[in-house]
Design a binder for these strands. Structure first.
Lengths: 120, 120
DNA sequence: CACTGACATTGACAACCGTCGATGAGTTGA
DNA sequence: TCAACTCATCGACGGTTGTCAATGTCAGTG
């Protein structure tokens, strides 16, 4: 028997949970405390070399399985799982569980909105 | 007597210390460990709400004095000094000491290269 | 030359974060 | 039904980080 695909995480950012920018672009006006906190949360998910490499791997392929990440990252399975969770909660990747495997793909819209918040 | 302006910090990133992108854009190819470490260092400088607000203040004005940051950030003087140092070492702001004051300005080129590394 | 003002540095402390072994939950195939 | 597999969660440990009081450094002022 084959299980139905299951959506995986994604945490609210601007309230609705979509991938739009959260903040007024840098350089236009000082950020409010709330905007800064929210933006820092997302950026913080990228402020780690392992997660950056993880995201670059996922973003370079249409879909990547968790099991394909352990080797290139040279990290233990719990560590990889931790990092995917952080990236997913920041909305930067999305996971779908199919059968035994969880498949990840990059959220390019979220990355674009982040670039925009950075002054793009 | 009036002292000459003094340049303030800026730390190597791609070796030359300029403001070009350090890494292959996300989504094009997996990052190397060195690229990821370097990019994470820069992004890490932005992964803090206080530094984000600090940068947004500096970037919204042609020049800002350190003394003008304490109040809006609601942080002590050593804390503000710490954050300006982190941002400067990441190349995101540049400081110039004139007389008693240190004047900061945003490094827009560095921000642009960061956006490019993020897939822009 | 003392004195004040602006900023950097030091040292200490609490909170947070990355890491992994052990364990648990759910799926597949025999 | 049971064994093997994939992944998430838990608990613990060590290292990093944000914060501030105290102190140091240097430029301008009287």
């Amino acid at each position: 028997m084959v299980a139905e695909p299951t959506e995986v995480k994604a945490k609210a950012l601007d309230g609705s949970g979509d991938a739009t920018a959260c903040c007024t672009p840098l350089g236009e006006a000082p950020l409010s405390e709330v905007e800064a906190a929210e933006l820092a949360r997302i950026i913080g998910a990228l402020a780690d070399p392992v997660r950056l490499r993880l995201l670059s791997i996922v973003a370079s392929s249409p879909e990547v399985c968790s099991c394909e990440l352990e080797d290139p990252l040279a990290k233990s399975q719990p560590t990889v799982s931790h990092h995917t969770k952080v990236l997913a909660e920041a909305g930067l990747i999305s996971g779908e569980k199919r059968g035994r495997w969880t498949w990840w793909q990059a959220n390019t819209a979220r990355l674009a909105s982040l670039r925009k918040a950075l002054g793009g």
